[in-house]
Structures are given as structure tokens and as C-alpha cells.
Design a protein around this nucleic acid. Structure first.
Length: 757
DNA sequence: GTTTCATTT
């Protein structure tokens, strides 16, 4: 009975999908353009063939287990952190400003003072001593050259130099465990160079997950070696290649090495590849693992170094056929960890109270406070409350300088966290995860960790990505704690219980490759001729269904043929470092003679964050400014194009951006991406043609990339996606929110929709 | 009915 119902529901869905496809055909005059030059009957035909292929694939994987593998989709947490945050935010917004609540406030005041007095009691119990990592290289001051030799020799790694070189000589793959501060990133490549691994012009490549890291480490090493940056020592990141013929030590982002691999699939110009910060498990590092492991099998002269933080060392070793592990101690200060005795009902409130407690009970000037919060909204709220409460305490306490920091904060405001704290005051830094790995702030002694962060997750069933507030992992909690006391011993206040830490938190954060849309990954894996991404040697395989979903999308975009092989279109698409739907859009623009406009749109869309600046208190002005770019119900893509061309007409002026509530940084990034895309057109055999007035042509090109994300207006005013029966609605900030066109194409988590008519 | 942690090619 149960089974029957299931099957009939599937059939029902299938029928409905077909019906919707039929309806599309009825509503669109030019049926060719909606499906990128393929008429519908053919699409249906392909769909059937593709379903068959998936069926075969599944049959070949044999075990149902693989198919049913647990998807790493975060389940809704029992106590709904999001709801709790939302409620807390609301409460605080209503709270302090309202005059009629004075009685309640004075009660709160008494309570607060009471709390502050008993501060030492509260965190007295349950200490756990931990060691602490010392320094990254990003903001290290450069001493003069004469001092370098000495300084190099005082690094912890120096005493292991000979053993290390012997181990590398004896093994093809070596796992190196060394905490930050051991000097591995700067020293190992130099040791290898001194030992002759760069003879014959071969390079030593060292990958970093972040651009700044690659740049600054290269700068540091070139100074240590006394050579000009970009000559013997260089770096290679997107938009900037500072290497030359002479370069032997090359620092680069992991994504960059991946792109290089697509051009030179045996990495012949390298004698050593060092994958640094491997524990961060970025998608690029994870793919590199598989590729590099494969290369090392036939290139016996290639040395492989995987360097990671302590926790996963055995796992890395297992993956690389029991490669030996080499441990190097770091240079650390001790830090204490304090837990709460009982769980906190309201993490934001607890964090604020803790900050005030620390501030009042500890002498000013002994160290600053770092608080980890989940996002911009929460940081802004916390800032308001803290300002309000410290103002009320007035001269009873020392000054508290509040510094918010998150990636989307305009750069000039970000600089504030690096300003030294004034005499007699204390700085409290309210940060997102950005302070966990990407930047280090001097002078932090106290860390307040409520134990949550926002995480991207991908649901392969619906093809939807979402951002959820989730408890962090143990590794992440330790990383946060380690941020205390870079300058001396520190303290970390965890706003949860020891029990929660030990029993509820995962050991490690789920690797990104298991919670992301894999379309791009599959396209990359297809290009060098890896026959089956399902058989790719992932260290942590992504869910089978996510891979299938990705292949299915690429097939629909005609990047793969019915045998799962890369087509000509697919090859042209893979030239672009973009999401496949955007790449397809560009490839299609060749046909519609509007590549000039489409690459602008693609660049604007692929700037990670929003182009529009919407500061608190000025939302109305910002929204009005944005409306200037929407001419009637023309769609948000066209609006983005207008933003870009207006900026260009204004000579790329920053002033213009301020006047129009546009993020300068995002626009500059869009311009960089656009320039790069323009350069790549030739490789993909696309002509650069401008056709700014034919909006229909532009829309057609967009649709041929984005048709898998189309949704149709229903009678009740909501939209329903075509591919999966999923209810969606247009974000109120979209230019289409009022018009409600019959059809839209959409981009998830974003303010973009557009009508195809 | 009003958003979005962090990265990267």
C-alpha cells in the first residue's frame, strides 16, 4: 500500500512537470530561445534518454547504500537556533529605546550590576588548559635583512631541517603536521630549494586557500632570500601573476593550481607540490588531493607534501596510502578555556553580558576582547546594545571601543580594528568567522565564543543552496579559542557547557565539497578526461545524488552528451572560471551577438556579495537609489547591466558609487572579472560584439544559461519552480516584485529574477 | 512577505 502511493506520487510529479513544459511551449512565441536553440520535443527526448542513463549509472554503482548515502544536509536543530536568534534580535530592537519600559529597565540594571559583581564566580569552574598558536605571516612586521638569518634559525622548524629533508627524500608523499607559528610555510620551500630540488628549472609550488596569504608569504620569503619578489620567488593568484622565467618558489592559491592543472595535466614544471593548510578542506584542495595523488603514481620524480593542523593527520595519511606523518611543534602561549555551568537560552545576550563582565572585572589595558557572532545583522544589533548599556553605566566603567568586522563591511571601516586601543580603554571586536582564519588581530586576550556560525548547505534533491545558523565543530571552537592571547596567555569563554562541547559538537566541520553545488566541480573533472566523477578518488565523497544532479544540469546545458562526455559547448564553457550556468550564458551570447553586454552581466552576477549598499537607517534612500536602475519591469539582470555601464560612463568613479549606494569594492571586482572574461572570449572562440539596445537578444542569451532555474506564477501569487515543485517568491528588493511576470528565471539566495518576455 | 558566514578560479 505504502509503496503504491509513493510510485503514484512520483508519476503525478512527472506528469505535472511535463504539463508545465507543455505550458511553457504554449506561452513562448519563440520556443527555440527558451531552451537555448533546442526545441522542446527534443528536450523531452533528451530528458528521457538522460533518465535512462542515470538509471544505468545507479545500476552500475550496485549498492543501494551509495545511492541512499546520508546527505550532509543540516537537519533543523532541536532548539532552532535561527528562531532563537530572530527572537532575540527582535527583543533587543524593541527593548532599550522604548520609554514606557523604564521600570523594567531599572530592574534589568540592578540585575546587570549583580551579574557583574559575581563575575569571578560564574566562570570559576571547569578550566581546561590549552596551548595556543602564535603567529601567521600576514601582518608580521619585516625586520631588516641582517636579522633574517638569525630569525630563521630560531623558528621551531629549524632543528628538524635535516630530518625533514631526509624524510622528503625517502618518501614520495609526506604529511606534515605543524601548527601555525612553526614556520613550515616559509621555511620548507626554502630548505627544498637549498637542497637542490629546483635544479634544472623545476619549481616548488605551494598552495594557500587565500589570496592574501599567497601574496604575503611570497613577499616574506623573497625578503628572507634577499631576492626581488616576482623573480626567483613569486606568487600567482587570479588577476595577478607575479612570476617569471626565473621563478623557482611559487606560492599560489589552490584554485590557481587547479586551473593550471587543466592546461598542464601532469604538472611537469613542478618538482615538489606542497598543499598547505590542507585541514581547511576547501573544494579546490579536495580536488587537488585526488589529482595529485594520481599524478604521483606515474611521476616518480614528483614530491608531494600535505601540511595540515593536528587533528586530521591520520586521515590524510590513510588517504595517501599510509604516507608517513612528520610532526613539528609550534610556538604557543597557553590559554584557559571556561565553560558555562548551564546552557544559555540566548547566546547573543549571554555574549553581551560576558563582554561587560570581562570589561568591568579586568583591569583596562590588559587586553582586548574578540566575540564571534554569526552575521552582519547580529553584529549590528550587538553593537547597538553594547553602546546603549555602556552609555548607561557611564563613568562607572572604562571606555569600551566597539569594532565590528565582517567581510561585507566597507574597507575603510574595516581598518578600524587594526587601530591601537587608546590608553585606559578596551577594544571589543565583534566579528564573524572572518576572524577565525582569515585575519588576525593583535592584542586580543579574551575570546567570547557562543558556539554558532552560519554555514552554507546544499540540498541535492531540490538543487537549493541555503545559509543556516549551526553549532560549530570542535576543531572550529579550538581555532577560535586559539585566537586569544597572541601577545601573551589568553582566556576563552565558551558560552556552552563542557558536556555540549564533548557530546554534541562534531569533531570537524563537514568539508565544503559535501555541502555545495557540484556543477562546477563536475565540469572541471570532466575536462582533463576523467571518465567518471563518481569514481573519482575523493577523500570525503560528496553525496551521489549531488553528483548526479550536477551531471544532469551539465547535460541540460548541453555541456555533456548522452554518454556523459564533454561536448564542444562544454569545452568552451570550461574556459571560464564561472558557474556553469553563467558560462553557458556567455557561450550562447555568441549566437545572439551580444557578448559585450553578457560578460558584464556575468561579471556582476559572479561578484560574491551584493553590489548594492544598504546601511542601517538609510535603507529607504538606498532602495530609492536602486530603483533608478530598474526601468519598468525589465528584470534585475538588465538592471545590473545598467549599473555597470553607468559606472563605466562615470569613469569608474568611486564618488559615483557613493552617490548611488553601490559598493565600490564589489564594482572593482566586477570590473576585474569582466576584463578577465573579455580576455578569455578568444579561447572559447567567441566574438566580442556589443549590442546594447537589443534587450531581447540579451535576455535570450541569459535564458539559455538560466532556463534550469525558471519558475512560473501561480494563481495564488506565488511562484513554483519548474524542475522541482518548490514554492518560491520574488524578493521584495527585486525590480520585478511589483510586476509579477508570468515567468521568471531565478538565482537562489539573491535578488535576481527576470521575465523572459 | 525585506537578505547574505567565509573563500576562490
Amino acid at each position: 500500500m505504502e509503496k503504491l502511493r509513493k510510485v503514484s506520487r512520483q508519476e503525478y510529479l512527472k506528469k505535472r512537470e511535463k504539463k508545465m513544459l507543455d505550458e511553457i511551449r504554449d506561452h513562448i512565441d519563440d520556443e527555440k530561445y527558451l531552451f537555448g536553440g533546442v526545441n522542446l520535443t527534443q528536450t523531452e527526448y533528451r530528458e528521457i534518454r538522460y533518465k535512462k542513463q542515470i538509471y544505468n549509472l545507479l545500476k552500475n554503482t550496485t549498492d543501494d547504500e551509495a545511492y541512499d548515502r546520508e546527505y550532509r544536509i543540516p537537519e533543523s536543530h532541536d532548539d532552532h537556533p535561527e528562531k532563537r536568534f530572530a527572537a532575540a534580535l527582535q527583543r533587543y530592537r524593541d527593548d532599550p529605546i522604548d520609554e514606557s519600559r523604564k521600570t523594567r529597565l531599572s530592574e534589568q540594571e540592578t540585575w546587570e550590576e549583580h551579574q557583574i559583581r559575581k563575575v569571578t564566580m560564574k566562570f570559576g569552574s571547569k578550566n581546561r588548559k590549552r596551548k595556543q598558536d602564535d603567529h601567521d605571516f600576514v601582518f608580521v612586521k619585516m625586520p631588516d635583512r641582517a636579522a633574517f638569518r638569525n630569525e630563521r634559525e630560531t623558528l621551531p622548524i629549524y632543528s628538524y631541517r635535516d630530518d625533514l629533508l631526509r624524510a622528503i627524500n625517502d618518501h614520495r608523499v609526506l604529511i606534515i603536521v605543524g601548527e601555525t607559528g612553526s614556520g613550515k610555510t616559509t621555511q620548507i620551500p626554502q630548505y627544498l630549494h637549498e637542497a637542490g630540488y629546483t635544479a634544472g628549472g623545476k619549481m616548488i609550488g605551494c598552495t594557500q586557500p587565500r589570496r592574501v596569504a599567497a601574496m604575503s608569504v611570497a613577499a616574506r620569503v623573497s625578503k628572507e632570500m634577499g631576492v626581488k619578489l616576482g623573480r626567483e620567488v613569486g606568487y600567482s593568484i587570479r588577476f595577478e601573476d607575479r612570476t617569471s622565467e626565473k621563478t623557482v618558489l611559487k606560492y599560489m592559491t589552490d584554485g590557481m593550481l587547479l586551473r593550471e592543472f587543466l592546461r598542464e595535466s601532469d604538472l611537469a614544471s613542478y618538482s615538489v607540490v606542497m598543499v598547505d593548510e590542507a585541514h581547511e578542506r576547501t573544494v579546490s584542495t579536495d580536488i587537488l588531493f585526488g589529482l595529485v595523488k594520481d599524478i604521483a603514481r606515474f611521476r616518480t620524480d614528483l614530491k608531494l607534501i600535505i601540511s595540515s593542523a593536528t587533528l586530521d593527520a591520520e586521515k590524510f595519511s590513510d588517504y595517501f596510502d599510509s604516507a608517513p606523518i612528520f610532526r613539528i611543534p609550534g610556538r604557543r602561549y597557553p590559554y584557559e578555556i571556561h565553560y558555562t555551568k548551564a546552557p544559555e537560552a540566548d547566546p547573543l545576550d549571554a555574549a553581551i553580558v560576558t563582554v561587560l563582565q570581562i570589561h568591568v572585572s579586568q583591569p583596562p589595558g590588559d587586553g582586548d576582547i574578540l566575540v564571534f557572532l554569526t552575521g552582519q545583522d547580529e553584529i549590528e544589533t550587538a553593537e547597538e546594545i553594547l553602546k546603549y548599556r555602556t552609555r548607561r553605566l557611564g563613568s562607572k566603567i572604562a571606555e569600551l571601543v566597539i569594532c565590528p568586522i565582517y567581510a561585507n563591511l566597507p574597507t575603510e571601516l574595516q581598518a578600524k580594528i587594526f587601530e591601537p586601543t587608546p590608553q585606559g580603554a578596551r577594544k571589543v571586536v565583534l566579528a564573524t568567522n572572518i576572524a577565525e582564519t582569515s585575519l588576525t588581530i593583535d592584542g586580543i586576550k579574551y575570546v567570547v565564543d557562543p558556539g554558532f556560525s552560519k554555514m552554507k548547505s546544499y540540498n541535492p534533491r531540490t538543487g537549493m543552496e541555503s545559509l543556516l545558523v549551526r553549532p560549530i565543530s570542535k576543531a572550529s571552537a579550538d581555532q577560535r579559542a586559539g585566537r586569544s592571547g597572541r601577545t601573551g596567555p589568553g582566556k576563552c569563554f565558551r558560552l556552552y557547557t563542557v558536556h555540549h562541547f564533548c557530546n554534541d559538537l562534531d569533531d570537524n566541520t563537514v568539508p565544503e565539497i559535501q555541502r555545495t553545488n557540484l556543477a562546477n566541480v563536475v565540469l572541471i573533472l570532466k575536462s582533463p578526461g576523467i571518465k567518471d566523477p563518481h569514481k573519482f578518488d575523493f577523500m570525503d565523497p560528496p553525496p551521489t545524488e549531488a553528483l548526479l544532479k550536477a551531471s544532469e544540469l551539465l547535460y541540460a546545458l548541453s555541456a555533456l552528451n548522452e554518454h556523459g562526455e564533454l561536448t564542444k559547448v562544454g569545452r568552451r564553457m570550461s574556459e571560464f572560471p564561472l558557474d556553469p550556468m553563467l558560462s553557458k550564458m556567455i557561450v550562447a551570447s555568441d549566437k545572439y551577438k551580444c557578448s559585450h553586454e553578457i560578460i558584464s552581466i556575468a561579471a556582476m552576477l559572479s561578484v560574491g556579495n551584493s553590489i548594492f549598499y544598504r546601511p542601517k537607517g538609510k535603507q529607504v534612500h538606498a532602495d530609492n537609489a536602486r530603483l533608478n536602475f530598474h526601468v519598468r519591469d525589465v528584470g534585475d539582470h538588465i538592471a545590473l547591466l545598467k549599473v555597470y555601464s553607468s559606472w563605466k560612463e562615470a569613469d569608474f568613479s568611486s564618488q559615483w558609487c557613493y552617490e548611488n549606494y553601490i559598493q565600490v569594492r564589489s564594482m572593482k571586482k566586477a570590473r576585474d572579472i569582466r576584463d578577465q572574461l573579455e580576455g578569455l572570449l578568444k579561447r572559447a572562440e567567441i566574438e566580442l560584439i556589443s549590442n546594447p539596445n537589443d534587450l531581447d537578444a540579451i535576455k535570450k542569451a541569459i535564458v539559455s544559461g538560466y532556463f534550469p532555474h525558471s519558475a512560473r506564477l501561480q494563481k495564488n501569487g506565488l511562484y513554483r519552480t519548474v524542475k522541482h515543485p518548490q514554492r518560491v517568491y520574488i524578493h521584495p528588493t527585486s525590480g520585478l516584485a511589483q510586476g509579477l511576470p508570468r515567468w521568471v528565471i531565478y538565482r537562489l539566495r539573491s535578488t535576481c529574477g527576470k521575465s523572459p518576455n
